[in-house]
């Protein structure tokens, strides 16, 4: 196979990674942006989403599409509720102090992980995709009679992977509309900019924080549900996405939503490309190096504001 088809394959795999990563990193970025909380347990909400998807799909036990739809509708709100309760029981009690919330969310990480291990077990378990047609992708070649299409061996994807990319685009658009066109979004942005003045204008900041923490966790869980037909649900599956999400929000700029999406695309596509041509480990090494360079030359990130 020529280089071109490999590039397309890498781009497609990278877009799937970027789609899932952008949802997850957006949640992390929202929580930091509005609450100034670095949520180390964010990867566990991703894992809880995937594990709940498996539990729900097995409980429904119907057609794969019905099972998956039930998981997609129930797992993210359930995870969001769990996060909102954690906010009230833990983060509120440490008064959202930046240092203490880091320690508190590390504690949450281990509690969620160990409870999952004790109940769900150590096995990796799959959820069947609602649809999973193999799609071959054509490429162009020059023949004596001109340009012609051909189907290189190995160049293809699945309808489910394309659906994940489409779903992420729709969800990101929905979050953008929520933040910019609704009163809830206006209240969240006002709280992000000046929580004390938001209080002076009747914004129930504590409830906004619980909602934002829930929304952030819900987005991570959504990413977990979308990925579980591609990867299997496992109690340690939150680690890598957490690392990549931190890389994305640091490169994009902490608290910047457009920055998060652009950085997710950069990291996701480079991850896909480098994984296809070299190894996934090299992709992560390069992403981590990227963070180091951003921290040295542009500590506020590509789209972030100075002083954050």
């Amino acid at each position: 196979m020529e280089l071109g088809p490999y590039l397309i394959l890498g781009l497609l795999e990278g877009l799937v990674t970027a789609a899932v990563l952008s949802l997850m990193a957006l949640g992390l970025s929202l929580v930091f942006g509005v609450m100034r909380v670095v949520n180390v347990a964010h990867g566990e909400f991703f894992m809880v989403g995937a594990v709940l998807a498996w539990i729900i799909a097995n409980a429904v036990d119907s057609h794969p599409a019905v099972n998956f739809l039930a998981a997609l509708l129930l797992a993210p709100p359930a995870t969001a509720l769990l996060a909102a309760i954690a906010d009230r029981l833990v983060l509120k009690r440490v008064a959202y102090d930046p240092e203490r919330t880091i320690v508190a969310t590390i504690g949450l990480l281990y509690i969620i992980q160990q409870v999952t291990l004790m109940t769900y077990g150590p096995d990796a378990r799959p959820v069947e995709a609602p649809f999973n047609h193999r799609l071959s992708i054509p490429f162009v070649e020059w023949t004596e009679s001109g340009m012609a299409l051909y189907w290189p061996w190995g160049l293809g994807t699945t309808s489910y992977k394309l659906a994940v990319i489409g779903a992420a685009v729709l969800l990101l658009g929905a979050i953008w509309l929520l933040m910019t066109r609704t009163r809830i979004g206006l209240v969240m942005r006002a709280t992000q900019l000046d929580s004390e003045m938001a209080r002076a204008f009747a914004v129930p900041v504590d409830r906004v924080y619980a909602a934002v923490f829930g929304l952030g966790a819900g987005l991570a869980a959504l990413a977990g549900v979308l990925i579980v037909p591609i990867q299997q649900a496992h109690y340690l599956m939150g680690h890598d996405p957490l690392l990549l999400s931190f890389i994305v929000v640091i490169i994009g700029g902490l608290g910047s939503l457009p920055g998060t999406v652009v950085a997710a695309l950069l990291i996701g596509i480079s991850d896909g490309m480098i994984s296809v041509f070299f190894t996934p480990t090299l992709a992560k090494i390069i992403a981590t190096l990227g963070v180091a360079f951003v921290l040295i030359f542009r500590p506020q990130g590509l789209f972030g504001r100075k002083g954050l």
Partner: peptide
């Protein structure tokens, strides 16, 4: 957050506007 609902308006020192919101959005708050 319940105090302003009883009709107490506050114009703080240094204005403390929601800097990145528009004029219309600040009024909406």
């Amino acid at each position: 957050n319940e105090v302003p609902r009883h009709g107490i308006g506050y114009i703080p020192q240094g204005r403390r506007l929601f800097a990145e919101l528009t004029v219309a959005e600040n009024l909406e708050i």
